[in-house]
Amino acid sequence: MTAAEQEQDPQVHKHTISVLLENKFGALNRVAGMFSAKGYNLESITVGPTEDESVSRMTIVTTGDDAIIEQIIKQLNKLIDTLKVVDLTYESFMERELALIKVSTSADTRSEIMQIAEIFRAKIVDISHKTMTVEATGSGQKVDAIIKMLKPFHIKELARTGRVALKREFVGDV
């Protein structure tokens, strides 16, 4: 959802929901299928193993008003393979997203792109005569920002992972 759309409906907010699931065949399909069957907005979904290999963690970014988010959480809990659902939105949490951004370069623009990457603490992970690929990690906003900065150079290809998140234990700023 764009900022403009969010302004239109002040009830609608972005939520980051962390789901622990039995690491079983088809678990991702059950969650993704539930979102499409119920018509919920699914901004990003990531899934991977956890410290316990029988459990997967799914991180879902979605938008909706309070009633919809309440239903989403209930519907996630209703899935037989779901172990735990936490809406991180109202907690202190860490979030990271990774993007690989392949940008057109020439001898003229190469150093400027490297400077931008440095400002965002991003890495250059591939280079050719005509391109450079930047690996950026950080919050969704940070990734948005570096993409915006690199856009004028012409982004040839872009891959984003979607958000992963964990609840913070430390109270206060790190």
């Binding site: 088809g26 399909n29 059950r30 299928g33 069957a37 037989i80």
Partner: peptide, 16 residues
Amino acid sequence: IVGITRPITKHNYLVR
């Protein structure tokens, strides 16, 4: 059929 019935079953299984 597991895919087809996923949204209309409480749960389903493929025995492997």
